[in-house]
């Protein structure tokens, strides 16, 4: 028998001898039955006319003139808009300065692109341009921060009150309302205040309170005390001390019958509020009340 003889048989392609041989086989009867039965088979109903109607309704083939759709064209339009928006925002975002800020009672460390380090004290903010960093090391500061500047080109800290420039050193800059203090811990710092430049050697500081340059001679430790969780003051009007206290503990301070211009020299803890309150009130000979987030300092003779 030839290959696929059953298929050939159906097509009447078997030779006479093959056919008679096939007819003699036992299976032949069943094959004939299969053929007869399958002649009666029917597929499910399918109405070509109604299918065509459905198709026409879906396509509007009759009345509407065929306008070739160009889905790619509208896709291109959308894509172009997206690309423009993306590139635009990319350059916009890129041109924005990097900025870091701290909330009240918070502190953070920032490492600059050249590995210079900044510790930000409570309620402070720095910003700098990462893109231009290679050309000029320029940091804008509000609040207070301690800088450990890596050696290199001129490093500038701009504040509202004045500008501090260095080459590579450690120094602290504090610029609060009516208060501007720069302390140099290592190397040499140049402070530009009201167009006057002043050099600060290591271990000295420059202080302006309320627009008045104060004599402010220096410090002992290699770092500002706040880095070690203490706030230190030397002959500073009490109101700035209280303002710092508010920032460190995120509390509201009120005073009654207290001369907030009296000078304060001392240190308070930035981690233990009770001890800090004692450290401020005892030397100033005032009393305090702590209620939740409110602190009231009052003079001895207040009822």
């Amino acid at each position: 028998m030839q290959e696929n003889y059953l298929a050939k048989w159906l097509n009447n392609e078997l030779s006479e001898t093959e056919l008679s041989e096939f007819k003699k086989s036992d299976a032949y009867a069943t094959y004939m039955k299969i053929l007869n039965a399958s002649k009666q088979l029917e597929a499910p109903n399918f109405d070509a006319d109604s299918a065509y109607e459905n198709f026409k309704n879906a396509q509007d083939i009759q009345d509407v003139k065929v306008v070739p759709l160009r889905p790619f064209k509208s896709f291109l339009r959308v894509a172009a808009v997206i690309v423009i928006l993306l590139t635009g925002s990319y350059f916009f975002v890129n041109s924005l300065d990097e900025s870091y800020s701290t909330q009240l009672a918070e502190r953070t460390k920032v490492v600059l692109p050249d590995n210079s380090k900044i510790i930000l004290n409570a309620d402070s903010k720095i910003s700098f341009s990462e893109k231009k960093w290679d050309k000029e090391r320029n940091v804008a500061l509000t609040g207070e921060a301690f800088f450990k500047v890596a050696k290199g080109k001129k490093f500038t800290v701009s504040t509202e009150a004045g500008t501090v420039s260095v080459l590579g050193t450690q120094f602290n800059v504090e610029n609060r309302a009516d208060f501007f203090e720069v302390t140099c811990y290592e190397g040499l710092v140049s402070v530009l205040y009201k167009n006057k430049e002043q050099k600060l050697p290591a271990g000295t500081s420059f202080l302006v309170v309320n627009g008045k340059i104060m004599d402010d001679t220096a410090i002992k430790n290699g770092q500002p005390s706040w880095v070690n969780n203490e706030s230190s003051f030397k002959s500073i009007p009490l109101k700035y001390v209280l303002a710092e206290f508010e920032r460190q503990y995120n509390v509201k301070v009120k005073t009654e019958n207290v001369d907030t211009n009296q000078l304060f020299t001392g240190t308070f803890s930035n981690t233990a509020i009770k001890i800090a309150l004692e450290s401020i009130s005892t030397p100033s000979k005032i009393s305090y009340k702590l209620e939740g987030e409110n602190v009231l300092f009052y003079g001895e003779d207040t009822p």
């Binding site: 290959e3 696929n4 003889y5 298929a7 097509n11």
Partner: peptide, 29 residues
């Protein structure tokens, strides 16, 4: 069987050779 399609037509639909259709037909039977 039902649609009376020739092997050649089925081969075109399925995208295979006529011989492959004959083989399928043979095996089916």
């Amino acid at each position: 069987r039902i649609d009376g399609k020739k092997y050649a037509e089925i081969a075109e639909m399925e995208g295979v050779s006529i011989k492959a259709i004959e083989k399928r037909m043979h095996l089916a039977l």
